[in-house]
Simulated assay, not measured.
Amino acid sequence: MNVIDNSKIQGNDIDLGLLLSVLAGAKDSPLIFYYDDQPVRPGYHITEVKAGQFSGLDCGANPEAWTEIFIQLWDIEEGDRTHMPAGKFYSIIRKVTEHVQLDGSAKLTFEVSDGVQPIQLYCAAAPALHAGAVYIELSPRPASCKPRDRWLAEESSRAAACCGPAAAKSDCCAGPHGL
Rank of each mutant, 00 (worst) to 15 (best):
V112R: 02
S170D: 10
G52K: 15
D80P: 00
A174W: 04
T97R: 13
T82S: 07
W66F: 13
E98P: 00
S113V: 13
L31V: 09
I46D: 04
K107G: 02
H83D: 03
I93N: 03
I71E: 05
E78R: 13
D36L: 08
A133R: 10
I119R: 09
G104A: 12
P147W: 02
I71P: 03
R150W: 01
K8I: 14
A133V: 01
A143V: 10
E154S: 09
G87V: 08
W74E: 11
L179F: 08
E98I: 04
A65H: 12
K169A: 13
L20A: 09
R141M: 15
P42D: 04
H99F: 12
D13F: 14
D36R: 11
L23V: 11
R94T: 12
T82P: 00
G178V: 06
N12P: 02
A124W: 10
A128M: 15
L152K: 10
A124D: 05
I71G: 06
Q117G: 06
P165D: 11
M84K: 11
K169T: 09
R148E: 11
A168R: 14
S139F: 08
V112I: 15
Q120M: 15
G175L: 11
G60P: 06
L20I: 13
A124H: 05
A61N: 15
A131T: 06
S55A: 13
D171W: 07
A126K: 05
P42Y: 08
R148G: 01
E111D: 08
P176Q: 14
S55V: 02
G164N: 04
G132V: 06
H177F: 09
R141Y: 05
P140K: 07
T67E: 15
G52L: 07
P147A: 11
V134G: 03
T82V: 07
E77T: 09
